[in-house]
Design a binder for these strands. Structure first.
Length: 547
DNA sequence: TCTAACACCTC
DNA sequence: GGAGGTGTTAG
């Protein structure tokens, strides 16, 4: 959340590591990029990754939501994200194959509540859900393919079902999250387990959100209705709408839509209407001096960033309510009692998809810790394979991963142990939440594996960031422990413990439970092997299904 | 808080 | 026409 994130009390944007020139401007639509390690060890990993740029599609819309405090519905069956996460990627080698995947990491270590029309911390976060990675259905594909058009992750679904068998990303309601995009080189020279596996992570702070089972902030509801085609039915349009509602309510006179009532009630008589709340561009939020507390800023070397285990993502927002004025309107959640739906007054379409060209102007690079299941330098060696996934409707592979927390980026070096469930033994769906040291985190892009993924400490609070700077980091270079074994063990997939047979064939999910702590990187060879293996398996599977 | 049924909508 | 994505609603 760019500014509004402040609503969530999110930490400021991640400081950029400045691997890239500070050429970025507000209009760069930068993503924070975490490139591959720059260490001698992994220097090669960066080859071909440095020039990669990612532009968030519909950034304006995202920002609009962010300013209010984005909320994403999570349901047992899985719910798509809206706005959809779509990006335009440039700088890829046309002939090289890449795997694009996403993960959603905790934004911090808190649980939130929405009261008095504002978000506030209500306690400690619940144990992190098993981390999962969503691999874009087209993966792996050539750079030319990815660059050809927008890369959409709109089919990614969020769920609150801890036992979800569909491979959806599991989240906790009332918790803050940060989506991340990972680009992994799947070149043949980067086989599974290869130390040269290159990848980079891109983070758009404006895509941070709070997971909810029902919308809390009415403004978000309205934004969704106004912009999501599938919610068109809830858009008010004109007087006819009122009459229609009246009919629904068995009345012959116009009825004021609930939303309208709320809106009015909320915005009336208060100097702190949503607009004035400062969520959007309020001086205090926009200009918030997100100090670099986690060292993500220039203080951390790319290498360090890479090494930094994923912790929760440092969101570019000031502490909750920080600098916020009381919300103006108090929207009661009481529903209007009527038979039919009460439609809100017509809302003007505030945003329409931005054109690609527009997006480009908003490019900004980013750098963050690698995806939990991603290759840390050692980890993911993706064998090249023409795993083209052209099944009618490609499915994405889901991987469990540890959820990185940015607030832990402080550490210059990281270590994490991955009590890897041997052979993907069913693990606790929700490992008891273990408080982590202030700056512990899981290694970035360390694995695509089933790693015990206990919640890791939040990074956000400790991170500062310059909204317009980019960071880049890569897999923990050190990866202190290279993947030793390249053998591909049986694919670890699904939730052996829950519904081994329920998993759709195309969804491969691994749940990761990772213990993270700050210190010297200690990679779990086992976990890495598993993730590496798993990913490969997933790809192979797809390939076989494709062909 | 959360869920399931629902009507309405897009695709 | 059907599948599936929406927010609403009641419980």
């Amino acid at each position: 959340m760019a500014n509004g994130g402040d609503q969530f009390g999110l930490a400021g944007r991640p400081a950029s590591d400045c691997m890239d020139p500070p050429e970025e401007t507000k209009e760069d639509n930068p993503s924070y990029t975490l490139n591959s390690p720059a260490s001698p060890q992994t220097a090669s990993s960066q080859q071909g990754m440095d020039g990669i740029k990612v532009f968030l599609h519909d950034r304006e819309l995202w920002t609009k939501f962010d300013e209010v405090g984005t909320e994403m519905i999570i349901t047992k069956a899985g719910r798509r994200m809206f706005p959809s996460y779509k990006v335009k990627v440039t700088g890829l080698n046309p002939k090289t194959k890449y795997i694009l995947l996403m993960d959603i990491v905790p934004g911090d270590d808190h649980r939130y509540k929405f009261a008095d029309n504002k978000w506030s911390i209500t306690g400690k976060a619940e144990p992190a859900m098993p981390g999962r990675l969503y691999v874009h259905p087209d993966s792996p594909a050539t750079g030319a393919h990815w660059s050809r058009q927008l890369v959409s992750f709109q089919k990614l679904k969020l769920t609150n079902n801890h036992l979800d068998p569909f491979g959806h990303i599991i989240l906790n309601s009332m918790h803050k999250y940060q989506p991340r995009l990972h680009i992994v080189k799947a070149d043949e020279n980067n086989g599974f387990g290869s130390k040269n596996t290159a990848f980079c992570t891109h983070v758009f702070s404006e895509t941070a959100f709070i997971a909810v089972t029902s919308y809390q902030n009415h403004k978000i509801t309205q934004l969704k209705i106004e912009n999501n085609p599938f919610a068109k039915g809830f858009r008010g349009s004109d007087d006819n709408e009122l009459h229609r509602m009246a009919k629904l309510q068995g009345k012959d006179y116009p009825v004021v839509p609930r939303s309208t009532v709320r809106q009015r009630a909320c915005s009336t008589g208060s100097p702190f209407s949503a607009e004035g709340r400062g969520l959007r561009g309020s001086p205090e939020t926009v200009g918030s001096p997100y100090s670099c507390e986690n060292g993500l800023n220039s203080s951390a070397s790319p290498q360090e960033l890479l090494n930094a285990p994923p912790t929760h993502y440092p969101l570019p927002h000031p502490p909750l309510q920080h600098g916020h004025q009381p919300q103006v309107y108090h929207c009661t959640k009481k529903k209007v009692n009527c038979k039919g739906r009460i439609r809100p007054h017509p809302y003007k379409k505030s945003f329409s998809g931005s054109s690609p060209s527009e997006e480009e102007s908003y490019y900004h690079r980013s750098s963050y810790p690698p995806p939990p299941g991603l290759p840390n330098n050692t980890a993911l060696g993706l064998t090249d394979s023409p795993y083209s996934s052209d099944m009618g409707q490609r499915q994405a592979c889901m991987f469990a991963s540890s959820e990185p927390r940015l607030d832990e980026l402080n550490c210059t070096s990281w270590s994490y142990t991955c009590p890897l469930p041997s052979a993907m033994t069913p693990m606790e769906p929700y490992p008891p939440y273990t408080p982590h040291p202030p700056y512990s985190s899981s290694p970035q892009g360390s694995r695509l594996s089933a790693i015990d993924h206990q919640s890791s400490p939040p990074l956000g609070e400790h991170i500062t960031h310059d909204p317009y700077q980019s960071q880049s980091s890569g897999p923990p270079s050190q990866s202190s422990q290279p993947i030793h074994s390249r053998q591909l063990s049986p694919p670890l997939r699904e939730y052996p413990r829950y519904t081994p047979n329920l998993s759709p064939p195309l969804y491969h999910t691994l749940e990761t439970h990772t213990h993270i702590r700050c210190g010297v990187p200690e990679w779990s060879a086992a976990s890495e092997r598993i993730q590496r293996t798993y990913l490969k398996d997933c790809l192979v599977d797809r390939e076989s299904q494709t062909h």
